[in-house]
Every structure is written in structure tokens, then in C-alpha cells.
């Protein structure tokens, strides 16, 4: 089985400061993993802010070059691709859909432009067909989106348009950087479930970058946990999150607050006065 995406000891360092006091900051240190072709999966990158996960995404997308190591798509160095040919295979989805779209531009323009540049649409009719097909994949239609501006849609709808825009190019890989953290709670799961459907029905591989361990457990196949630019733990998502072995992974897992952690702080600090009235069912 050949590899769709290979990261081979990829590192990225930035130098900060001026001529006399420059400091090197290693944002990503020797990260390696492989996504197989023909076995679509949701590959999750977990880490807190500053752990290097967005820098990693930018290197996979070819926006930043790696300082050392190589990112290969289908066996070829990402840097050696012609940009359009690369973007037709790898598409991004960003955190905040309100920042990803220009507020003064109609949404259908993005879809048509992507269709013409990366999706191989020869004319407007073909572009419209591609756009409509992609919007239907995400539960919208061209009729609903056509002529609308970003502010006319809710955050959840806009993020679905962002997913549709990525799909128009008919990519093999989607890199989604914190795609649900700006989406309303009641709509979040519809985006996460959409990723699952894209994997199962369209055979797309998705790199899902997040700090939310619960959705990572819910949707992903494999994951890596990053701390300060390094991978501290990697493996099948559910196995790793059920029994994390690295101290940092354990710390992360233990810090997750869910409805089941009810009273985590109440128990430690009970009321000094009369007990809280109202019984727990």
C-alpha cells in the first residue's frame, strides 16, 4: 500500500528577535507519521496552544516550508508540486469561518473559483454543478447559498460552506485546523459527524487538529498528542485516550470536564452552611 501523506522527521524553527539577540524557537521537532492511500481515516493532532499543531498544519498545506525533514504527498516532496496541482489534492478548513471568508464577497464566488481552479470545471455551468453537489454533501444547496454574504449565515452554516468549498476541489486530503471550536454547541456535532460521513462515503482522509479530547475520541481513528512541538504519544485514538501512558497525555485527559465530572470542585469544597437542598436523582 502506498502512502498518501508522509511526514519524515519534519521540524520547523523560527528565529525571533533582532540582529544581536536572535533566539531560535523550535515550533515543531521531528514529527513523523504516514497516512496510507486507500485507507481513509481521520487522523487527529491534539495539543494545547503553543504545542505546534497549527505550524504542523501549515507545513502539510505547503504554506510554510519545513526547516528540516520532508513532507511528501503521494511520494513527492510537497515543495516540488506546482501549487494548483497540489491544492487540487489537499484542501484546508480553518478555525473561524467568519475570518476565512471575506465579508464583502458573496459565498458562491468562493465555490465557483475553487471549482474552476482546482475542481477542473471548464465553464460556469460545470462549476455550478460541482458547487451544488458539494453543498448537498454538507446538507445545504446552491439555491440556499447563492448570492448570500457571510454575515447572512450562522457560524455552523458558514463552517459547512467552508467544508463544501474544500470538497469542490475533490481533494484526497483535508486539513481542518480547529474546525469546530467557533461553532455553536448545538451545531458542533453535525460538523463532526459530517467529517465521519466524508471519510466513510467519499473516502477522504482528514487531518483533524483540535484541543478537544472528547470529539477526538468520538470521531478519529488514530491520533498524536503534541507538547512543545514534539509528539509525546501516538496510536489508535480510542486506545490512547482510554489509557494514556505519557504523563502529559494523562494530565490532559484528567483535565477534561464533562457532564459526568459533575461536582468535581463542589465535592472538594463542600458548603460550610446547610447542605445544598435538592436531591440528586
Amino acid at each position: 500500500m502506498s502512502a498518501l501523506l508522509e511526514l519524515d522527521k519534519v521540524s520547523k524553527s523560527f528565529s525571533r528577535g533582532g540582529l544581536f539577540s536572535s533566539r531560535r524557537v523550535d515550533a515543531v521537532k521531528e514529527v513523523s507519521f504516514t497516512l496510507d492511500d486507500g485507507r481513509p481515516e481521520i487522523f487527529t493532532v491534539i495539543g494545547e496552544s503553543g504545542s505546534g499543531k497549527s505550524t504542523l498544519a501549515r507545513m502539510i498545506l505547503g504554506i510554510n516550508a519545513a526547516s528540516s525533514g520532508q513532507v511528501r504527498l503521494a511520494g513527492r516532496d510537497v515543495a516540488s508540486y506546482e501549487r494548483r496541482a497540489f491544492m487540487a489534492q489537499v484542501q484546508p478548513i480553518f478555525q473561524n469561518p467568519f475570518e476565512a471568508f471575506n465579508p464583502l464577497k458573496r459565498l458562491d464566488r468562493y465555490l465557483f473559483m475553487t471549482a474552476e481552479r482546482f475542481g477542473g470545471a471548464a465553464d460556469r455551468a460545470a462549476a455550478e454543478e460541482l458547487a451544488d453537489g458539494a453543498l448537498r454533501q454538507v446538507g445545504l444547496s446552491l439555491a440556499e447559498v447563492s448570492g448570500r454574504f457571510p454575515h447572512e449565515l450562522s457560524g455552523g452554516q458558514l463552517q459547512r460552506v467552508a467544508v463544501a468549498r474544500a470538497l469542490v476541489a475533490r481533494p484526497r486530503l483535508i486539513v481542518a485546523d480547529e474546525p469546530v471550536s467557533m461553532v455553536d454547541a448545538s451545531l458542533r456535532m453535525s460538523i463532526v459527524n459530517l467529517f465521519g460521513r466524508l471519510r466513510d462515503e467519499l473516502g477522504l482522509s482528514i487531518i483533524y487538529i483540535t484541543h478537544d479530547l472528547a470529539t477526538a475520541y468520538y470521531i478519529s481513528d488514530r491520533l498524536i498528542i503534541m507538547q512543545k512541538g514534539m509528539v509525546v504519544e501516538a496510536g489508535p485514538a480510542r486506545a490512547v485516550l482510554s489509557a494514556p501512558s505519557h504523563p502529559y497525555s494523562r494530565q490532559l485527559r484528567d483535565a477534561v470536564l464533562t457532564p459526568d465530572s459533575a461536582g468535581a470542585f463542589r465535592a472538594r469544597h463542600p458548603l460550610k452552611a446547610a447542605a445544598t437542598p435538592g436531591a440528586t436523582p
Binding site: M189, V192, Y218, L241, D260
Partner: peptide, 17 residues
């Protein structure tokens, strides 16, 4: 709708906005 670690039950988003 909140997913939990250790629980694989299908969770749905809410239709509409």
C-alpha cells in the same frame, strides 16, 4: 450531544440555527 471519552454512542447536532 456532548461526546464523552469512553463512550462511542452516536451524537447528533441539532437541526436549524
Amino acid at each position: 450531544s456532548l461526546p464523552r471519552i469512553g463512550d462511542v454512542e452516536q451524537r447528533e447536532g441539532l437541526e436549524g440555527t
